[in-house]
Amino acid sequence: MSVKEKTEFQPKIVAFCCNWCSYAGADLAGTNRTNYPANVKIIRVPCSCRVNPIFILRAFQRGADGVIICGCHPGDCHYITGNYYTRRRMTLLFSMLDFLGIEKDRTRVEWVSASEGGRFAEVMTEFTNDVKAIGPNRKLEDLRCKAK
């Protein structure tokens, strides 16, 4: 049992977090000492709509097993409308990734506000477990980045 635990797959998760909500939410999770998986690497963005589809693909190229985008709840965008655009773009992008046969559970968008530290931790734990369940990213990997 203990051997199995040691060799358990630890996914790399990239979380693009909006500066005005979920990034602060992550901070809050930290100050509240709420645990969330260490697999998550946060990249701060000024708004969830700053996330270009290329960023997501590049994250997979560089070894991410899952990519999550966190923004303000619809209607609460610091820039008024940014996350509405994110919503459309990501819906279409994720659908396209699915169309190419890439696992649906590798990508996610969540709305997490600055006050939702607990929810941030929950979302990250859940997402990490989902990605853990589907295993390492093979379909969008770049072997050059995985060697050694």
Binding site: R62, G63, R144, C145, A147, K148
Partner: peptide
Amino acid sequence: DFNVGDGSIK
């Protein structure tokens, strides 16, 4: 140059 990310370049 392709940046592998671990300090080396292909």
